[in-house]
Design a protein around this nucleic acid. Structure first.
Lengths: 202, 202
DNA sequence: GTCTATATAACGATAGAC
DNA sequence: GTCTATCGTTATATAGAC
């Protein structure tokens, strides 16, 4: 990792378990795909295991054979969605300069959010999801590294600016007014705003 | 109403029922206050009538005496929160110029969101809330009037800019990184962003 | 890997007494 | 306006057969 994060304490890098290395059976993948879709539609609390089982045409017991609790399914869904963010983060951390790393990361976060926008709302805003993510280190670790990289310590308002940018990305892609917009245009507009509002040349 | 909205068809203004005129008993107000808080914490689906009843120290049956269904409670909560938006909208519509109206509305929407930020997430992102709001005309009417006023048809990207601004406001105020920030500072920063997104002086 | 069957608890909602 | 009591349904979760 080429970037040193003097302002934050980050866990040792060497033997970090990677989300990308998690292997799943076909049955598990079917469950997670159905759950992701249903969580987006009805929220986590509004999605029962029966609904997930019905969606893939099996019984509840078959689902419980793969995951012991509903919480485990929620976390597995989150992990599978965080893979793209982890990849973006690792690519950014490999950049030579911190400036380059920040630019690349912001770009990738935007394109990831745009591409996966049908599921961004539940991942970012569902109260059950938020609570589970907060207690799951592999995911909080990724978020901490992303913010640690994006934050510059140039001013007391830096936190607010990054918060606003991150929030803007996540919330814009789920906004009803842009639902009909193609990914490319949406991505371009978000980059333009990032540039203008946050003085980052991308 | 001093503003003519040539680009949208808006229902007749004269006898529009106002949310502000809805009267509630003390018992109903207690239910709505408890529900608002619990929805924010657990989401709508994650909040049972038993939880609401426990919160105010009565039984489920007492709650059902005030509202016949859970959906009615959700809608009543939304209506009570939309009162501030309705007031902001009416004040803006009374402005002499459209430019003035847009500025005032944007300012008021920002300050409303900042002041009510603990509850913004569930109102804006909860899937059950979204579904109920979409089918409830008094609320969709207010949203349509707000967007109708904010949208200028000067460019093809107008929708995206409004979406970005709306998303920015809604998502920033709920972001954990600004949780400790006082209302005044947060409001000032959001106004600064709005200025730069829209190229207008607020 | 999926099934039937079941346990236990909580859900939304209603009836009727006070 | 609130209570007790209850209805029918659904929830998460498990046991054991195939």
């Amino acid at each position: 990792m080429a970037i040193s994060l003097t302002s934050m304490t980050i866990a040792a890098v060497g033997d970090r378990p990677r989300l990308q290395s998690i292997r799943r059976t076909a049955a598990q993948a079917r469950i997670l795909a159905a759950a992701l879709e249903l969580f987006a539609q009805h929220g986590v609390s509004g999605t029962s295991l029966q609904m997930i089982a019905d969606e893939i045409g099996v019984t509840k017991a078959a689902v419980y054979h793969q995951y012991r609790t509903k919480d485990e399914i929620v976390l597995a869904v989150a992990e599978s969605e965080f893979v793209a963010l982890e990849a973006a983060l690792e690519a950014a951390e490999a950049e030579k300069s911190r400036e380059q790393a920040r630019k690349l990361l912001l770009k990738q976060v935007i394109s990831t959010a745009v591409e996966r926008r049908p599921w961004v709302r539940s991942l970012q805003n569902d109260p059950v999801m938020i609570r589970l993510l907060a207690g799951h280190e592999p995911l909080t670790d990724i978020m901490a590294r992303i913010y640690g990289l994006l934050l510059d310590d140039t001013g007391p308002q830096a936190n607010v600016r990054i918060a606003i940018m991150g929030a803007t990305i996540g919330a814009t892609v789920v906004h009803p007014l842009v639902a009909d917009l193609d990914n490319q245009t949406l991505e371009r507009e978000l980059l333009r705003v990032a540039k203008r509002v946050f003085d980052i040349s991308l």
